[in-house]
Amino acid sequence: MEILGFALLGLLIVMSPGADFVLVLKNSIGAGRKAGLWTALGISLAISVHISYSVLGISYLISQNEALFTAIRYAGSAYLIYLGLKGILTANNTLDTRADETTQVAGLRYLSQGFLCNVLNPKTMLFFLSIFSQVISPDDHSHLTAVGYGLYMMLLHGLWFALVALLFTSAPLQSRLKKVKKRFDQVCGAGLMTFGALLAAD
């Protein structure tokens, strides 16, 4: 029952709107399905970082070090504001493709955006700290349980955001969204800047 509870909690956390969701939405509609899927993969890979330091107990040390935690918080805030401002300034009604970029370079660009958006979010760090503090115990098998739950969260993030990318790049939605793409990019950009500002103000 406890495992089921943690599984449902993870599902609710992943599906709740946040900076990751807005970024995947922005990249999917702005640059196409592959961009959204690369962003989703970046977010999923970032979860492995949270898992690693949570299991090792580093996140507790970070949360207890006010200066370090504040630095992470402001770095995450600045990155979100940068992405949001960039989205507003470059908003247009065409797909964000670059003739001088190979598919691999473009993929890595969107992957890094997803990765940094998630890994620099201190709220995500605190979520994993709180969850793993409940999962890990003196029991010899608790670390295996924690790693298992972490892998579940990675998979959950990857699947959910990939689904978002696929849904919002489907043909029926694309034909409608193309007409309002510029406005949508601006709204997503403003949303990212808002998340960044709120993160800095917390």
Rank of each mutant, 00 (worst) to 15 (best):
M125L: 15
G87E: 03
A162I: 09
W38I: 02
G196Y: 04
T103Y: 00
L199P: 10
I88L: 10
T94R: 14
K178T: 12
L56Y: 00
G42C: 02
E2G: 06
L163R: 11
G87V: 03
A165E: 02
T97S: 03
A35W: 06
P138L: 06
I47Y: 11
I81P: 01
K26C: 11
V105M: 04
P17Q: 03
S63N: 08
S59M: 11
C188M: 14
S44I: 03
G196F: 01
N92T: 09
P172W: 07
L166C: 15
W38P: 06
L166A: 10
I13C: 01
M193Q: 02
A165L: 09
T94I: 08
L56T: 10
I47W: 05
S77R: 00
I51H: 02
S52C: 03
L116I: 08
L45I: 04
V55K: 00
G150P: 11
S112G: 10
F69I: 08
L198V: 13
G148R: 04
H157T: 07
S59F: 03
A78N: 00
V14L: 05
L12D: 07
L177S: 11
G32Y: 01
Y53M: 08
Q64Y: 03
E66K: 15
Y152A: 14
L173F: 14
Y149Q: 02
C188E: 04
P172E: 06
I72T: 05
I51N: 02
T97Q: 11
A171G: 07
F168D: 07
V135D: 08
L129E: 03
D20Q: 09
N65T: 13
W38L: 04
L45T: 05
A35V: 10
I58P: 02
S48H: 04
K179A: 15
A146T: 06
Q186D: 02
L167E: 05
F69T: 06
H141W: 11
I131R: 13
L111T: 09
V49D: 03
P138W: 09
F132C: 05
T94H: 08
A46T: 01
F161C: 04
Y82G: 00
M193C: 14
S175N: 15
P138D: 10
I3N: 09
L144G: 14
G30F: 08
G150A: 07
V55C: 02
M154K: 08
L156I: 08
L151W: 11
L45K: 01
R183T: 14
S77A: 00
I29S: 10
V14A: 12
C188S: 09
L155M: 14
L4A: 14
N92H: 05
L108F: 14
T103L: 05
L116S: 05
S44L: 07
A201S: 15
L68S: 01
T97L: 09
Q113G: 06
F132T: 01
Y152F: 15
Y53G: 11
T97V: 08
L126M: 15
Y53W: 12
G87M: 11
V22L: 13
M1C: 12
A19P: 02
A78I: 01
N93D: 13
L9C: 05
V24N: 07
V105I: 11
G42A: 03
E101R: 12
H157L: 08
A31S: 15
V105F: 04
V55A: 02
V180C: 14
S48I: 01
F128E: 00
F128R: 05
A190V: 13
M153Q: 03
H157N: 13
L56P: 03
L89N: 07
G18S: 00
R98A: 11
A40K: 05
